[in-house]
């Protein structure tokens, strides 16, 4: 069996809120193999942000083990964790987080500044990463000269430039319109096809539907973990979406490859497995 990219067992995370100790994660086990495309879902307060911070090595668990690409991380110092983030993880944020005064190339090259592996030819690597997300003609544009979708593409190029073992995206389409969201999701699918391991944290059912597998959290625990095709909540969502669109205008049935693209928030059911 090959080494999994992520292997966590018995992870808990407790925060002190004044006198009270609040358990944000209460015993999470999760294994994600190479080249998986996983969506982590959950309502706010379910612990998905905490889990994402721990997966991204931005935070350390209170207890439990986290082995990232064969390396135990739960005991590492802040400096060592920074190195692990640089080497293993590519972050994509909801709000892009680009340096406003820097060009696309400079933004993409940012992780290479702190890299021990790629210290030579950083500009060339950054340009290649930009080409791979379809922004070969926007190299020297600044963020304010780019559309929202283009900005997120720059952020994705930045996340990929260090060849991370895990691409970790936090609500990557949360600030984009539905058409642009589709393009970004298509890019993720393309990256997955090329072998990238991807974890998307989202609360949008239709976005999660593009992943291979959906992990649902509630109250700090994993409540369901199914392949997308067999996930009961997601199937329910698809059925309702199909009915809604059929009702709406009596239009022709949707093609087998297309997905519901309307803002059908009503269909969202949280995580009742």
């Amino acid at each position: 069996m090959p080494t999994p990219v992520i292997e966590i067992s018995g992870i808990t995370k407790a925060y002190k809120m004044g006198e009270e100790v609040v358990g944000a994660l209460r015993g999470v086990d999760l294994r994600i193999d190479r080249n998986e495309f996983v969506a982590v879902m959950g309502a706010s307060g379910s612990g998905k942000s905490t889990l994402m911070n721990i997966l991204g090595c931005l935070d350390r668990p209170t207890s439990g083990r986290y082995i990232l690409n064969g390396q135990a991380t739960e005991k590492l110092s802040a400096g060592a964790l920074a190195q692990v983030r640089n080497k293993e993880i590519g972050f994509v944020f909801q709000t892009f987080e680009l340096l406003p005064r820097s060009t696309a190339v400079v933004n993409v090259a940012l992780p290479l500044v702190y890299s021990r592996k790629f210290w030579w030819g950083t500009a060339r690597r950054a340009r290649e990463a930009l080409k791979s997300v379809g922004l070969g003609d926007r190299m020297t544009h600044r963020p304010n000269q780019l559309s929202g979708g283009q900005r997120q593409r720059v952020a994705i190029a930045r996340a990929l430039v260090n060849e991370p073992s895990l691409l970790l995206a936090d609500e990557p389409t949360g600030n984009l319109d539905s058409k642009t969201s589709e393009e970004i999701i298509a890019l993720f699918r393309d990256l997955h096809q090329r072998g990238q391991t991807i974890v998307i944290v989202t609360h949008e059912e239709d976005i999660a539907g593009h992943a291979q597998r959906i992990v649902r959290l509630r109250d700090g625990k994993v409540v369901s973990d199914f392949p997308t095709a067999t996930d009961p909540v997601h199937r329910d969502f698809l059925d309702r979406a199909a009915q809604a669109s059929a009702r709406a205008a009596g239009q022709a049935a949707v093609g087998s490859e297309s997905r519901p693209t309307h803002e059908s928030r009503a269909a969202q059911t949280g995580g009742s497995a």
């Binding site: 920074a82 983030r85 930045r158």
Partner: peptide, 16 residues
């Protein structure tokens, strides 16, 4: 502050 957070997420050690 956000830029500092970003740089840290991208792998900048505290000393850097």
């Amino acid at each position: 502050t956000r830029e500092i957070g970003l740089r840290k997420a991208m792998g900048a050690r505290p000393s850097i």
